[in-house]
Amino acid sequence: MAAVIATHDLKKNYRRIEALRGVSLVVETGEIYGLLGQNGAGKTTLIKILLGITRGWRGQAELLGHTAGTVAMRRRVGYLPEDHHFPDYHTAFSLLDFYGQLLDLSRAQRRQRIPLELERVGLVPRMHTKIRGYSKGMKQRLGIAQALLHDPDVIFLDEPTDGVDPVGRREIRNILLDLKGQGCTLFLNSHLLSEVELICDRVGILQKGRMIREGDIKSLTQQKGRFLIGLAQGQQMPLADLQSRGYQIAPLGERWEVQLEEQQNIDPVVDLLRAQGLSIRHLVEKRQSLEDMFVETVQEGNKGRT
């Protein structure tokens, strides 16, 4: 797969503050990539460099095969900034019409695409109302509509579900998954880690301008050697037998958590339970939530720095 976004040793200073300290990442076509980090970690700076909003950076930054920030490349990019502010004298329709003209969409294209995108985010009934009357959630939906207006190849979304209610969040999530299905590449900045966990293929964690961890969600949240086992109702776990064989086992609610050592395997545990005529109703390798993994990683990062 071709790289849509590629940075190498990307650095950016705001006077004496080092916002990015050599960030390298690659996002491939069709991926949903989530960039995580605390406030001030450099997430927005990274996006702004890629889009040409922030200048004066060092290193390499490429978007769609072009050096980041070129005018021609921007035709193929959609962007929803964090804390966006739309001119409130516009209606949703007139705003998209204005942006459409700046994007060189013809009148016919605008007439066709604007209602379509507003329909997608559920704003058609209010599309001729002034934006100053919109709720935060409606403005957020409008932000997504404007980012999709010109059918871009890659979309950058900075906190796309900020201020949106749970139903709206689910709708936005579905929109993003639809876009992924259409082959669109998505780059997401979000503090809502549960959302990120649900939709992103890969995530990177940025801390104080450095990429401290990166990978696919599954591998990052996997807790190697921890399994949860549940037996049929009324059956007792043969604790003594398992402990005598060197397995660490402890109750966790109605289930049991088995901690394997380096050389151990879960199969002998299953064999023992079956041999004793017990019915296994639940067996799963235990995973961390993305949030736990994020907090753990950030704390480790902080310790490492101190």
């Binding site: 702004k48 909003i53 900034p81 966006h84 502010h85 942006y99």
Partner: peptide, 9 residues
């Protein structure tokens, strides 16, 4: 506001 304009071609 400016971000939304600067990303236009």
């Amino acid at each position: 506001t400016v971000d939304l304009l600067l990303v236009k071609p």
